[in-house]
Every structure is written in structure tokens, then in C-alpha cells.
Amino acid sequence: MKTRFRPGSFFLSAYGWLFLTFIYVPILLIVVFSFNANPVNMMIWDGFTLDWYRTIFGFPTTLNEQTLYVESTAQLYSAVLNSLTVAFLTTLVSTIFGTAVALAVARFRFRLKSFYRALMFMPMIMPDIILGIALLIFFVSFGFSLGLQTIVIGHTTFLCSYVFVVVSARLADMDESLEEASADLGADGWTTFRRVTLPMIAPGVIGGAMLAFIISMDDLVITYFISGVDSTTLPVHIYGMLRRGIKPEINAIATIMLLSSFVIASIGLYLRARKK
């Protein structure tokens, strides 16, 4: 019975692998062709080279001047630095805000609770272009100068929602009587938070923070509207490069970004697996 060939299940399996191919082949192509020596047509293999990586790191290359499309590496570096700065600050603030609201909603009874739920839900379902233009109008009409600070503010408005959702899920799993037990055993509110609540929800807080960091690093649309001239982030920088023309060194940049995404995702998954 068991060994009978079942066409339905065979085709489903074949489809499953095809699906995964569809997801991963485009990504693999970038990696493979980032080592392609052909400077004229990026998609025709012409031998292995590390030149594109050398280019973006500012090392001398074997390519002659004609084929070099060197964008200013300084611009690229400053974009990376901007992205990291924004992501770091955004993560810090939105993790605190998101966790605080999650605690309030999970552990207290108050009349405006459903309002806060809606408020934290709204930025997640709002098309990002709307938030982008709304923030742009707001900043300009109130005389904020556009720059890293406006990007941090803009990212925080929607990223505390993500932290809120992740931490809330964790809080819902946590037995409230643990906090009562701590108070009963003589710990005041702050001690209880530090010794019981925080260690219990730490995976949620860390998870939410990592999510916020990744999304902030990757955000293009909102940043595109509210970044000033001198405060380009990495995605906005690459978007600009792509609009000006497709150049081989973008492959190399993309590959490095892929690599760091994998590293971050793996760390996150490792932490989660270890918790269990």
C-alpha cells in the first residue's frame, strides 16, 4: 500500500522544489555573476574575477579605466555608515517604546486599550508611501531639516509597532502570576521587572529589536522621501545607482549585503533555537 506510486504526491514534491528554485535562483545568480570578469555583458560568463569587490573597497584593479564605473566609494561608505547609525538608534528607541506599550496593554486594564492596539496596528498596515509623504509634509511644514534625525524619527513611528507585536506575543505566553509571585516574595516593581519580567520576555525583546534593525536597514520607501541630500542610506544609494544604470559592482555590493543578511538571520535563528 505504502509503496504505491502516487502521481499527486510526486507532482506536489516536484512543484515544491521548483518553487524553492524560483525563490533562490535569482539570489544565486547575483552571487555567481559578482565574480564574472565580463565588463560588457554581466550575464555572459567570462572568467573569474574579484575586481568588482576590489572596486567597491577602493583597491586597484586590473580593469582598464574604460570599463571602470567607479562610483565614489566614499559615498558608498557614508551610505553604509548612515544606514547603521539610523538602524542602531531606531532599534534602541523603538524597542523601548514598543516594549513599554506592549507591557501596558498586556498587564493593565484601562479604557483606551483598544485605541492603543489600533494605534500600534495602523503603521503596519499603512502603505509605506503614505507614511513617507505624510512625514515629508510634516517635517517640511514644521521646519525640521531633513537628515539622519528625521529618518530615525520616521523609522521609529512604524518600527515600534513591530516590536510591540513580537513582545506582546511573548507576554501573552508568560504567566502573570510569576510577577505576582515576585511581588509576594518581597520584590518591588522595578526589581520584579528586572529579575522576572525582562528575563522572561527577553527573547521577544531581542527578536523584536532584530526585526526592527533589519527593517530599518532595508527601508527604502520612507527613507527615500525623508532623507536629506547628505543623509543617503544604503538602500537609497543602491536605488539611485540602479536608476542611473546597471553596473557590475552592484553585484558585489548586493552579494556582501546578502552575506550580512544571512549572518544576521542565522544568529537570530540560532538564538531562538538555543532558547528552546
Binding site: 535569482p26 532595508d218 543602491i238 546578502l258 544576521i264
Partner: peptide, 11 residues
């Protein structure tokens, strides 16, 4: 987790 812009660039 992979940058949106990278994924679109692939296409």
C-alpha cells in the same frame, strides 16, 4: 531578511 532592493536587482 534580504534587502528588497537586492532581490529586485536580481530580477
Amino acid at each position: 531578511f534580504i534587502s528588497l532592493i537586492v532581490r529586485l536587482f536580481a530580477w
